[in-house]
Design a protein around this nucleic acid. Structure first.
Length: 407
RNA sequence: CUGGGUGUGGCGCAGUUGGUAGCGCGCGACUUUUGGGAAGUCGAGGCCGCUGGUUCAAGUCCAGUCACCCAGACCA
């Protein structure tokens, strides 16, 4: 991408209404644009980050045999009334709207009901199971208070996966496969070291659910962990019974804050029973399908990663999610000419700052935007056919032969 | 929803005791600059969140309303 051709413009100062670090930096660097409280647009750079995150998740889920779909956002109340979840007292985050022909619709805050219902058309035998179905979709939740930049929005991107099984053992088995896949996903996103599987409230059908919490000062959840972080739990389940279950004492736990980036949940019959998702087993007996659900907050992850790696100069993306690998700057007539050539060969992975600006300004923007490597080509570096490559995170600079820079 | 705060060019801000708006950044043109956010000159751009009221006169006063931020509560 050529900087001169994009409509993006960086800002020296964040808008006054962006106080959260992630929102302020992502706005200043031109990744997102705010529409209203908790509602954001993703600009070209931001969309690339989102797509990179999705690609990693997609890769890991596909390896488990999951199938991707895209379901509707508009929801039929009748369906949700079957589980009691259209009621505002039951689910208080609904956005509801009206059909001009009469009648009410909801904007989906999640998708257990429609997917479970849809599968009644396709599941009839034990031979149809198991199934693992996921999507990346915009969710709508009418939060009382949106806050923290893109960490808690009213409209946000989420990956939601649902699994369907003939037995609890099969559900358990898949659940643990997802646990491992989530670990790989967060590793690949660069936040593996700071992300912990956390015991959280499991509702009525299972004792616990698991959250994936990334340690972050602005995180909204209070979590407790033991010395080696082998036991991490959400404050909501901190009680004597749970401590006994997990074989830890209150004294050995420390408190910190985390941002929930994922949540996995054994639903069992919670939705399949009221929605009557059944199959015939090999004894010709009708049985109810076991279910699990597994979420990852995609847009929230972008905010978490942004916030996690930011420093006083700006963003500093891990290479796996960065919108580009190289931030290219040519200095002087000769340097600019050579930079043009380099860009021709590396246009996919390069943000070429070809604007008519002084180098200092480009350097500042390269740091704000947080591309992993800044490549500077000038008459000085060209003396031995090289470029100066600066690592955004470490600040280290190396002189590298142009042809050695990988795509 | 409760409490606190804020709405003035694209962004950040100032605007004294009411007299129809000003600064920095950014933007356009020209000149000089060109490895860490350059300098000069000229210039474009706002009816001051919205509605109503008081007044000869409202960005400034009053009432209402909307939006946004922070804390809390809430978070299927």
């Amino acid at each position: 991408m050529r900087f001169s051709k994009t409509f993006i413009k960086t800002l020296r100062e964040a808008p006054k209404d962006e106080t959260a670090k992630n929102g302020a930096l992502l706005t200043r660097a031109g990744y997102i644009h705010k529409e209203m409280a908790g509602v954001y647009d993703f600009l070209p750079l931001g969309l690339k980050v989102i797509e990179n995150i999705k690609a990693i998740i997609r890769d890991e889920l596909n390896k488990l045999g999951c199938e991707e779909v895209l379901m509707s956002a508009l929801q039929n109340p009748e369906l949700w009334e079957k589980t009691g979840r259209f009621s505002d007292s039951e689910v208080d985050v609904w956005f509801k709207t009206e059909l001009s022909a009469g009648g009410i619709l909801g904007l989906a805050p999640t998708h257990e009901e429609p997917l479970t219902n849809m599968l009644r058309t396709y599941i009839s035998s034990y031979k149809d199971l198991p199934l693992y179905i996921y999507q990346f979709q915009t969710k709508f939740r009418n939060e009382l208070r949106a806050k923290s930049g893109i960490l808690r929005g009213r409209e946000f991107l989420m990956k939601d996966l649902y699994s369907f099984h003939t037995s609890e053992e099969d559900l358990d088995k898949f659940y643990s496969e997802v646990e491992k896949a989530y670990g790989r996903i967060f590793d690949r996103l660069g936040i593996g070291d700071a992300t912990f599987e956390t015991f959280a409230s499991g509702g009525i059908f299972s004792k616990y659910s698991h959250e994936f919490q990334t340690l972050l000062p602005v995180g909204e959840d209070t979590i407790y962990y033991n010395g080696d972080k082998s036991v991490v739990l959400n404050k909501e389940v901190l009680n004597d019974e749970v401590l006994a279950d997990l074989k830890v004492s209150r004294d050995e736990l420390s408190e910190t804050t985390g941002a929930e980036v994922g949540n996995i949940f054994k639903l069992k019959f919670k939705y399949s029973e009221p929605l009557e998702l059944k199959y015939i087993d090999d004894n010709n007996t009708q049985k109810t399908v076991y279910m699990g659900c597994y979420g990852i907050g995609v847009s929230r992850l972008m905010g978490v990663i942004a916030e996690k790696f930011a420093d006083e100069k700006g963003l500093a993306w891990p290479e796996s999610v960065a919108p580009f690998k190289y931030y290219l700057v040519g200095i002087g007539e000769e340097g600019i000419k050579k930079a043009e050539e380099f860009y021709e060969d590396h246009s996919e992975e390069t943000l070429f700052d070809d604007r008519d600006l002084r180098p200092g300004e480009k350097f500042a923007d390269s740091e704000l935007i947080g591309i992993p490597y800044r490549v500077v080509i000038s008459s000085k570096t060209l003396e031995n056919g090289s470029a100066e490559v600066t690592n955004r995170k470490t600040g280290e600079t190396k002189i590298v032969k142009l042809e050695e820079l990988e795509k």
